[in-house]
Design a protein around this nucleic acid. Structure first.
Length: 277
DNA sequence: CATATGTCCTGAGAGC
DNA sequence: TGCTCTCAGGACATAT
């Protein structure tokens, strides 16, 4: 489940295509239902062929490939992978970019479950289509003051609020549990009831966890599909304190036992002993 | 407006 | 062994 650290790793992994000229964009034949792609592949190919990639950027959990005044926006969602090297199989490749020059370089977006999406947007449309009303500030750049302000305004449990991309962009189900464990805050606590110093603890934990996870190139879970640009797994899964560790002892307080609960139809893992407030 | 719920999708793993 | 069933969750659509 690519969240901010995994998507950031994907972006860094494809940095080599900056400066390269796209020769063509294709969607390989696929037996599965076609992925959501807008506009169609023929239009995308027409607009991007012969254009030079100017930069790569990330918006929350999306990868943006900029060329000319276009941005190809890839949203990996659950099982998507953007890579210049081998993807797990050839049957779930959803889009491929070929480049002039070295024919071995090609970028593939692979997505087994096909929940991911692909959009081609004018640079000038990014703000209106992707950001305003949809995405809050990025988790790695939001200020403490803005973070406190935003989480003061919702009554939902803090875990559920952390997943709302309109409040802060980039946190997903795995890192939300890890962040709250490091901050020693109960995932059940209504966000607006949490004191400013405790919200600061969550903010600090968010930056610490996300940056550490970026350094570890993300988390590769038991399904093994998430890989970095060299097709190696990430290593942050070895640092997980609570995620998917139900019934194991809490690594922090050594007294509690990790519990799994369900909030907003998502698993939450936490230590009821040391995350009481 | 704020919040809650349903939906999409595939394949791993559980259980019998 | 082979079958059926459940579950994983990001983000949008729709309902309350």
């Amino acid at each position: 489940m690519p969240e901010l650290p995994e998507v950031e790793t994907m972006c860094r992994g494809i940095a080599d295509i900056v400066g390269r000229t796209i020769s063509r964009v294709t969607t390989p034949p696929c037996d599965y239902r076609p992925i959501a792609i807008n506009p169609g592949i023929a239009t995308i190919n027409k607009r991007l062929a012969r254009k030079k990639v100017s930069r790569i950027s990330r918006l929350g959990k999306r990868v943006l490939i900029h060329a000319d005044d276009w941005a190809l926006v890839i949203q990996p969602k659950m099982t998507g992978l953007v890579s210049l090297t081998d993807v797990p199989d050839t049957t779930h490749v959803r889009i491929q970019l070929d480049f002039r020059g070295n024919p071995l370089t090609r970028l593939q977006f692979w997505d087994r479950r096909g929940l991911g999406t692909i959009q081609l947007l004018k640079e000038s449309e990014i703000e209106r289509q992707l950001i305003s009303g949809r995405l809050g500030p990025d988790a790695l750049s939001i200020s403490l003051a803005e973070f406190q302000e935003r989480f003061k305004r919702t009554k939902r449990p803090i875990k559920v609020a952390l997943l709302d991309q309109k409040l802060v962009a980039g946190i997903g189900n795995l890192y939300a549990s890890e962040i709250l464990h490091t901050a020693r805050i109960s995932p059940l606590r209504p966000s607006h009831e949490i004191s400013a110093p405790r919200i600061k603890r969550i903010y600090d934990a968010m930056l610490q966890i996300l940056w550490e996870a970026v350094e570890h190139e993300g988390s590769t879970l038991s399904d093994g599909t998430y890989r970095n640009a060299l097709n190696d797994p990430g290593s942050y899964q070895n640092q997980h304190q609570v995620y998917d560790r139900k019934d194991q002892p809490c690594p922090a307080c050594k007294q509690g036992v990790i519990a799994r609960i369900v909030q907003a139809q998502r698993s939450t893992f936490y230590c009821p002993k040391c995350q009481r407030m």
